[in-house]
């Protein structure tokens, strides 16, 4: 017997969580695009998509966020810090790759400086992941030693039932147990079997790729130029990526008052590394694409012992010129054989 949440009870659960003060967020399809968005009721949630177009990252690290308000008068400078408003929330229907992405970024945001914006939202969020029963051509979690039912970064894991009428419930953390205790009345014990997980084919050999990337001789390989010739230098891959975390600090306003903001930035942009002198250490798109791959599979694991990729495949799925991590690592796999 397993604890089961039947889909016809989801309405009650959403109401219950809302009345307990939780904002309910989940996968929503709207105007030809999908994302994790706040819902008023369970009917707005869409569990049919493989995964939302936009990653879960933006719920913790928004594309733009005020961090400081300033005003300057003759003899006086006033600053006011701007932290996000407290908002306890439950993210219902995350994908394992997205939840894993958050766990991958935790050490980064807590390393030399603890990013209050990230951790306040992390601490206020219950992440309920639904294991995947379908995948598309771009999914690659299994190539990153993850799986459609990875529990990394999740507070609760749900496994869809074979009859599609609900989910088996596995509470993973204290936070998850607390959230599901609130809806205990709507859960049932049952022996309904879970549906088979999505089959995600392993697309490249990660270990040999990492070894190739770590070899200093390959830093100047002509491979980089060839693989990235068609890269147009937009930030679609980095902005949709659940683990890409670079940001820029910008002041908006004038000399006398304004807002200091934290905005997404991308290593794909030439401006990202442009020096004031005009010199750019990453002056070509191939150097920028190399940086992205090296950062994810060489520098980041060197520091935090984990690859900065959870295999969601958005970089390839939504690339305007059909590039992405999968193709690059597949080609590196061939080179390293």
């Amino acid at each position: 017997m397993t604890k089961i949440l039947f889909t016809d009870k989801l309405h009650n659960c959403v109401e219950k969580w809302q009345s307990a003060g939780l904002t309910v967020i989940g996968p929503v399809q709207k105007a030809n695009s999908s994302s994790y968005a706040t819902v008023k009721n369970a009917g707005e949630l869409d569990f049919n998509m493989v995964l939302p177009d936009r990653s879960i990252k933006e719920l913790f690290f928004p594309q733009t966020e005020p961090i400081l308000h300033y005003s300057i008068k003759k003899q006086e400078i006033n600053t006011r810090e701007s932290l996000p408003p407290n908002e306890p929330r439950i993210i219902f229907g995350a994908r394992a790759c997205d939840a894993s992405g958050l766990a991958i970024d935790d050490p980064l945001f807590g390393w030399d400086y603890k990013d209050e914006y990230w951790f306040q939202r992390r601490n206020e969020s219950v992440i309920v992941t639904i294991a995947c029963t379908k995948a598309d051509d771009f999914c690659m979690c299994t190539s990153l030693t993850l799986a459609p039912d990875s529990t990394k970064g999740s507070d609760v894991l749900l496994r869809p039932l074979e009859n599609n009428k609900g989910w088996q419930v596995e509470e993973l953390t204290e936070r998850g147990r607390e959230a599901f205790a609130k809806i205990a009345d709507f859960l049932q014990e049952s022996s309904e079997p879970a549906a088979p997980l999505a089959v995600v084919e392993e697309k490249f050999d990660l270990d040999s790729c990492v070894a190739w990337l770590k070899n200093p001789e390959n830093f100047d390989s002509k491979f980089w130029k060839e693989i990235s010739m068609r890269c147009i230098g937009c930030a679609s891959c980095t902005f949709l990526c659940p683990t890409c975390h670079c940001f820029d600090i910008q002041d908006e306003g004038d000399t006398y008052s304004g807002i200091r903001r934290k905005n997404w930035d991308s290593c794909s942009f030439s401006l990202f590394t442009m020096h004031t002198s005009g010199h750019n250490p990453r002056s070509t798109q191939s150097a920028r694409w190399r940086q992205r791959i090296m950062h994810k599979f060489n520098y980041f694991p060197g520091k935090f012992s984990v690859n900065s990729c959870s295999g969601c495949g958005r970089c390839s799925r939504q690339c305007p010129v059909d590039m992405g991590i999968t193709e690059t690592l597949q080609e590196i796999s061939k080179l390293s054989q």
Partner: peptide
């Protein structure tokens, strides 16, 4: 409101 300023439209 969905625009993330990735500038894919510009670059393409």
């Amino acid at each position: 409101s969905r625009c993330i300023k990735c500038y894919a439209c510009r670059q393409a």
